[in-house]
């Protein structure tokens, strides 16, 4: 397998050369989230409005009087990206209907970090998905509140040391498992839900394109490596994403009208240790804890494979 998935080795040269998320943004060195946004924008193209939750990406991209965005962009607050997006979508829809803007499809895309999606923005997200707005929501999950200084979120994995769930003599970091946001979104019965990672850029961009083309709500959960918060060298950002996928910790799949499909299936699942040992946030974990994590990851992965093998699409179920 080549280094860029098993796609065409020269695939990167075929993607849109336009940079909709321009250089000069203030993200940390090796920021996986900034990379993921750059790729997402390329897949979306120019007929897009971006609604940003408060977080790293908002702060690093739009220090007045400048902006890194080459797309129409709005930020209102932390918990409401999905609700603002619902308003933007409704506004564009009604104005198009009334002939006040050109009659062409402009997609509203909401983006937020894990805090703005799993935790504080969860209610607004659920509402927007339930109401069926034509909105794509992309969660860039770097597994903690990185913007405020690496605090634990509902997306932080078990055992990770954060500034509010630190490892110490009486603690092994976060004591709870990561919330399964993807499954919660699937349970909203929206037409398209997928996981993705910037380390598999073509896979991610294909999913963004697919979600963009679907009328109605869609959700992409994009694992985004944060070298600063994960305590890994910035050069390892891509490698860490790849290891998350290859160890089965973050499987790449999509759920289209209820039908599960693995979009990348490693031939051999690597032990979770390969992923965990390179990261400072897991440095304190004992062999027993590692075994517990391995057990849980294997269970979750098998649960997913079971769904891939046994669940049918809505269309198939109608008959």
């Amino acid at each position: 397998m080549s280094i860029v998935e098993n796609f065409d080795l020269y695939a990167p040269r075929l993607i849109d050369k336009e940079e909709y998320f321009s250089a000069g943004h203030r993200a940390c060195q090796g920021c996986g989230e900034a990379l993921a946004i750059r790729l997402m924008c390329k897949a979306l193209g120019k007929d897009t409005v971006v609604v940003n939750a408060t977080g790293c990406m908002e702060v690093i991209s739009t220090m007045y009087p400048t902006t890194a965005w080459n797309l129409p962009w709005i930020h209102v607050a932390f918990p409401n990206a999905a609700a603002v997006a619902a308003g933007v979508e409704a506004g564009l829809k009604v104005m198009r209907r009334k002939g006040r803007i050109p009659d062409r499809d402009v997609k509203t895309v909401a983006i937020g970090g894990d805090g703005g999606t799993f935790d504080i923005g969860f209610q607004a997200l659920s509402g927007t998905m339930e109401r069926g707005h034509d909105v794509l929501y992309v969660c860039f999950d770097n597994e903690a509140y990185m913007n405020t200084g690496i605090q634990r979120s509902g997306a932080t994995p078990f055992g990770a040391s954060t500034t509010t769930a630190p490892a110490g003599v009486a603690s092994s970091g976060k004591g709870q498992w990561k919330k399964n946001i993807t499954e919660i979104m699937v349970a909203h019965n929206v037409p398209y839900v997928a996981t993705a990672c910037h380390s598999y850029p073509i896979d991610f961009m294909n999913k963004v394109k697919k979600a963009r083309s679907i009328k109605g709500p869609s959700f992409i959960h994009c694992l985004s490596v944060c070298p600063t918060g994960w305590r890994v060298p910035s050069a390892h950002a891509i490698k860490m994403g790849r290891l998350a996928v290859e160890t089965g910790i973050f499987p790449l799949y999509e759920v289209e009208e209820g039908k599960y499909r693995m979009t990348y299936r490693p031939e051999r699942i690597r032990p979770v240790e390969d992923y965990i040992k390179g990261q400072g946030r897991f440095r304190h974990l004992s062999p027993d804890e590692l075994t517990a994590i391995q057990k849980r990851i294997t269970l979750e992965y098998n649960k997913l494979l079971d769904k891939v093998d046994n669940l049918h699409s809505w269309g198939e179920l109608q008959d």
């Binding site: 409005v49 609604v51 709005i74 209102v76 607050a77 918990p79 409401n80 999905a82 609700a83 603002v84 997006a85 619902a86 308003g87 933007v88 979508e89 409704a90 506004g91 564009l92 009604v94 104005m95 006040r100 803007i101 209610q123 607004a124 659920s126 509402g127 339930e130 109401r131």
Partner: peptide, 21 residues
Amino acid sequence: ICVESEHSALSACCGASGAGA
């Protein structure tokens, strides 16, 4: 828009107003 909270009601209005509605 039958939003799921007042927080979202005003948020949606901000989004719509930003869009020009």
